[in-house]
C-alpha cells in the first residue's frame, strides 16, 4: 500500500510528465488557451493513460519480454520480442483510443460531447506513449502499480495544463513585448511553473 501511494505522489509531482520530461507539449501548448477546453483534454488524458498503461504492462510482461511467452510451452522460453515494443505499444494505444471513443459515445453521450474532438487526438499525444515507455523502464511489480502510475501521471499532466491555461487567460490583460506574445510567453511561463514544481523534489514517503 505504501508503495502504491509513493508511486502515485511521485508520478504527479516529482516526475511530472510536462515539467520533468516535456511530454505532451504539443497539445499542451495548442489547447491551453482556455481553462474549459484544457479541462476536457486533461480528463481525457487521465482516462486514456489509466487504461493504456496497465494494458501495455500486461502485453509487455506476458508477450514481449524475454521468456514471457513461456505460457505457450517450454520451447518459447528464449523468444525475445522486445524489439517490437514500440510498434505494439502504439498499436494498443491507437486501438484503445478508438475503443474508448466508441464506448464513451454509446454509454455516456454527455461526456462524449464534452471530450469530443480531443479523444482521437490523444492517440498521437506523446504523454501516452511516454507513459507506456517509462512503465517499461521502471519494471513495476504488478498491474496495480502500473495502473497507479498511469493515473498519477495523467493527473500530473491535468494539473499542468489547467495551471497554464489559467495563467494564459490572465496574461491576455498584461502588456507583453509583441515578439514575446503567445508562444514565447507560454514557454517562459511553463519554465517558471517547472521551477516551482522542482520544489517538490526530495520528498520521500
Amino acid at each position: 500500500m505504501e508503495n502504491i501511494i509513493n508511486i502515485f505522489v511521485k508520478s504527479i509531482f516529482l516526475e511530472n510528465m510536462v515539467f520533468a520530461y516535456f511530454l505532451g507539449m504539443c497539445s499542451y501548448l495548442a489547447v491551453s488557451k482556455s481553462v474549459k477546453t484544457a479541462t476536457g483534454l486533461g480528463l481525457a488524458v487521465i482516462f486514456v493513460l489509466g487504461i493504456t498503461v496497465p494494458v501495455n504492462y500486461l502485453l509487455e510482461n506476458h508477450v514481449l519480454k524475454e521468456g514471457a511467452l513461456v505460457w505457450l510451452g517450454p520451447k518459447f522460453e528464449n523468444v525475445d520480442l522486445s524489439f517490437l515494443s514500440f510498434i505494439m505499444f502504439i498499436a494498443v494505444i491507437a486501438s484503445m483510443v478508438q475503443l474508448v471513443e466508441m464506448v464513451v459515445e454509446k454509454f455516456a453521450p454527455a461526456l462524449y460531447s464534452s471530450l469530443g474532438i480531443f479523444l482521437p487526438l490523444i492517440a498521437v499525444n506523446c504523454a501516452i506513449l511516454g507513459g507506456a515507455l517509462f512503465m517499461q523502464q521502471k519494471e513495476f511489480l504488478n498491474v496495480g502499480e502500473a495502473t497507479t502510475y498511469g493515473i498519477g501521471s495523467g493527473i500530473g499532466w491535468f494539473l499542468a495544463i489547467i495551471g497554464i491555461a489559467a495563467i494564459r487567460e490572465k496574461t491576455q490583460y498584461s502588456n507583453i513585448p509583441p515578439p514575446l506574445r503567445g508562444l514565447g510567453m507560454a514557454f517562459i511561463i511553463t519554465g517558471l511553473m517547472g521551477m516551482a514544481f522542482m520544489g517538490f523534489s526530495g520528498i520521500k514517503l
Binding site: R181, F187, I188, G191, L192, G194, M195
Partner: peptide, 26 residues
C-alpha cells in the same frame, strides 16, 4: 529541465524580433 523551456522561449523572442511578421496578435 525548466531552463530548456526558458531558453526556447528566448530564442522565439529573438527570432520574432528579427522577423516581425511572425508576431501573434493577442
Amino acid at each position: 529541465s525548466p531552463m530548456a523551456l526558458i531558453t526556447v522561449g528566448i530564442i522565439i523572442w529573438l527570432h520574432r524580433t528579427r522577423k516581425r511578421d511572425l508576431i501573434e496578435n493577442k
